[in-house]
Every structure is written in structure tokens, then in C-alpha cells.
Amino acid sequence: MPNLLRIPLTLLFALLLSIVTTSFATGRDLETITKEGTLRHLGVPYANFVTGQGDGLSVELMQMFAVHLGVRYEFVQADWGTIIRDLVGADIKLSDGQATLGDAVAVRGDIIATGLTVIPWREQVIDYSDPTFPTQVWLMAEARSPLSPITPVSLEADILATRQLLTGQRLLGMRNTCLDPALYPFAGDPFETIYFTGSLNEMMPAVLEGKADITLLDVPDALVALNTWPGQIKILGPLSEEQQMGVAFRKSSPQLRRTFNDFYRELKSSGIYRELVRKYYPDVLYYYPEFF
């Protein structure tokens, strides 16, 4: 084959492949899932949402949802840096709080349920279900830290008091998650940000090992940490307004999202969801009794 023809043909093939892949990625809504018989659940081992041992609040929720759909459940492990890309089938480009889709990649899952906090830029590329879990970002420190927990007054005053504790500290955060300091108003405060590259579950141990002075943790993770290291850590105060977590869908899967919301409301009204939450996050029920 003449070399002159080889390059255009290769490009043509790549283009066709890209078209096919993209169409597959965007077209896998409820109908396709039901037809193919598998619900692929994207999750990251994190707190008690996905324990990594085959269970967790999100895992059980998705397993119930798969049963509800009458399809087979399949867990697809992802990481925080790529989990949205694995859902939407395209690279995500962030710029000044604006997220856009980049190059097409393979779609690995149909639904994200892993304690995913609702953040504005995420909403630009994915759709969230009804809120499934309340959360907030707290500032955590080692028990021996000279920083003292704030005295609660009101949420607004509490956030300001907590921000004052940040001064001069080495703060541990994580990109592409709700624990990225850059997402919050205190980003400009005088502290040093250390971005952690491990998993969310390893952030508190990193502080205990002296890799940072303080760390951000969301409420579910902080409550788990309190039980895991009793007396070794302390909660200094809040750094964000109350947030919410939800299950994420491709924007091209409105039917799936709608079906899940119906399913979730039914689960919640029956009290099953509350018992599920009690199983994995019993303390949350007392912090946010009105949510459940």
C-alpha cells in the first residue's frame, strides 16, 4: 500500500472509532442498561461509602438499585482523579471553575455512588440525583496539636473562627474532591496547602504521621475517624456550609437518573434507607436528624 494512502486511512479509522466510542458512551441510558443486563457502579474505596471489602452504604444502595432494575450488579473501582471521566467518557478540563469535556475516553461505568459531594464544577459535566447524604467540611488536627477547637456560636461565626486557626498551618487537601481548599473562600488565607495523593481514607493517618499539621475532612469521614482513632484526633471546627452528596449520572442518562430518584424516595419513605445509614453512619443520624 502506498504510504501516501496509509496515513489518511489510519486517521479515518481513528475517527470512526472515536465516533463509535462516543456514541456508545453517550447512548448508554436506562434502556441500554436494562437491555444489556448490567449496572456498572463506579466507586472509590472511601469511608463507609465503599469500604473496599465488598460492602458500604453506596455499594448496598447500588446493589438494591440493580435489583430494582432487574439487572446484574457490577462494581468498577475508580479513583478520585478519573472517576468522572470514567462516567462521562471524556477528559475533564478545569479552568477558573469551569469544567469542559476534552478528548473522548472509554466509558467504564453507568453511575457514580461513592459519597460524591455536589460541587458546582461537577454539575457542569454530570447530573446529581436527589441529595443522598449531608456533609460539611471540617478542620481536623491531631490531639496533641496546640490548636483548640472553636466554641460554637453560629455556623457563620464558627467558619470564621475556624479559618483563623488556619494561619501558618500546613493544610492537607486533595484535588478533584470536595476537600480541595481551592474550592472554598478560605483558599486565599495564609496557610500552606499540601495536596495529598493517596486515598481520602489515608488523610487523617497522614496528619498523625506529621505529614501535615491539619487536614480537611468531610463529616462522614470525620465521624469514622473519631471512632477509628478515639482520643488521638480532634475536630477544630467547620470550614464550609452544609453540603450534600448525591449519586452522579451522565447528562445523557436522564431516564436512569429519574428512575433512581423514584427508587430513592421510596427507599427513604419506607425507612430502609435510614436503617442503611444507621448501619454505616449511625452518628450522622444525630447530627442531621432532619435529613433522614
Binding site: P149, L226, N227, G231, K234, I235, P282, D283, Y286, Y287
Partner: peptide, 30 residues
Amino acid sequence: GPEVSAYFRNKALGMSMEYGLRASIQNLSR
């Protein structure tokens, strides 16, 4: 037990009911 101990230690660390201490109490109740 560790639950009672954790409550008093968290209290001693200055943690407030709103931010952490309530979890210890709930743990005790459980």
C-alpha cells in the same frame, strides 16, 4: 470501655457537642 473513655477524652480536648462530642455520646448510647 473505650466508648466512655473516648467521650471524656474528646471532651477534654475541647471538642463541642456540635463538632464531634455528640458523636461520642451517640456512640455511648449504642
